[in-house]
Design a protein around this nucleic acid. Structure first.
Lengths: 221, 221
DNA sequence: CGGGACACGTGAGCC
DNA sequence: TGGCTCACGTGTCCC
């Protein structure tokens, strides 16, 4: 490329400026220039081409670079910049990326299925102002029902809910309880509940939410 | 490359087999062969080189391919394979990859900080057989303490814990309770607790865990 | 030296 | 037609 470019520059200059223009016939000049123009065009096209290609390469390599920075696997710059960065080759970077993406995806899906299908958007959910009750089957876990409820918080609430759970002979394997501002939002993961008893549990919970069936009385032990 | 290879094959054959060997002087033959060997070596080296380079390219492009498959952003193969796959160019694939990786990382860290630093390995933790109590500050959230306890499950346990929480004028913003096999593991995220009162809460909880300060008595309302 | 990794310029194909 | 991408073979540098 070097020689082409210099060739292009020097030769073109000589032709354009070096010849005594008045002594060249018009037709000869034009044909000559046309001749030159053709190769000039070719050369300049090649130059453009190679430059565009260089830009493309730089774009891609820039992406590799940022990829290297966000992946926790390569040797970073030392404190001293004299020490050359011993970085992994492109194929390895891509391989590592693939690995990481797969791992991250697995992680995310694990957590999401752990939350029984809730998206990561509503990870932290505060009690709703309105009373709510929802039962849903967990699609990725057999025989697991997620009961979500929002209601007024009260002293006997948990006991009432526990009683409601017990009334349908079910087992709460996990609970998530948020109480804030006098409101309560609870999520219960329930096992051992057939399709038929989902309605029963729902009505029991509805009752428990609104008028706890019993009150607690404290007595010093 | 094609012409180089055929050149190498045919010429070599002609030289080796085509000449009437007995009539060539030994020195001439060897020097001639040597001469040939040099270009031969060069040619075969070039071939090896280009082949290695091809292998390298294929390795990299293979990675691009798998990257394309695991990223949910590109037009996939249609049912009909005649329709050519209109796929994004390399730079875009890398850019999309970077975007995805960043998003996934954010998602994961969000969830993990929501769980207050617990790794995704111990997302579902069952109660420990031994009694345990641990208080730790959440590093990514100011004024948030995570209290984790494992102990014998009992009817008054939650009330006792609630009392312990109230005794240090703190607020539980979130709770995670797992009760299984007569054992209980609870995690409480607590706000409004100074450094000085962490010890107080710890001892209060310790007491609540082992001998609840009061018992519940049920009475029909 | 040989093998690996990269950048380069160029030919080819595709809108 | 030109602008873009890709594959290719090669030059070069580094173990």
């Amino acid at each position: 490329m070097q020689h082409l470019q210099s060739y292009y520059n020097s030769e073109a200059k000589m032709i354009r400026g070096g010849f005594p223009r008045p002594f060249i016939s018009r037709t000869y000049q034009t044909s000559f220039l046309k001749q030159r123009s053709k190769t000039e065009i070719k050369v300049v096209a090649a130059k453009k081409h190679s430059e565009a290609e260089k830009r493309r390469r730089m774009r891609i390599n820039g992406q590799y670079e940022t990829l290297r920075t966000i992946l926790p696997n390569l040797i970073k710059h030392g404190e001293i910049d004299f020490v050359m960065n011993h970085q992994k080759d492109k194929a390895s970077v891509l391989a590592e990326t693939i690995k990481q993406v797969k791992e991250l995806k697995k992680k995310v899906s694990e957590v999401e299925q752990d939350r029984c299908g809730s998206s990561s958007k509503d990870v932290v959910k505060f009690p709703s102002g309105a009373d709510r009750l929802r039962l849903e089957k967990c699609n990725n876990e057999e025989d697991l029902v997620k009961a979500t409820l929002s209601c007024e918080d009260s002293l006997g609430l948990m006991s009432a809910i526990s009683r409601a759970m017990g009334s349908v002979k079910t087992k709460v394997v996990k609970a998530e309880i948020v109480s804030v501002g006098g409101r309560n939002r609870s999520v219960f993961w329930v096992q051992g509940l057939g399709n038929d008893r989902m309605g029963m549990l729902k009505s029991s919970l509805k009752i428990a939410m609104h008028k706890p069936a019993f009150k607690m009385r404290r007595s010093t032990h």
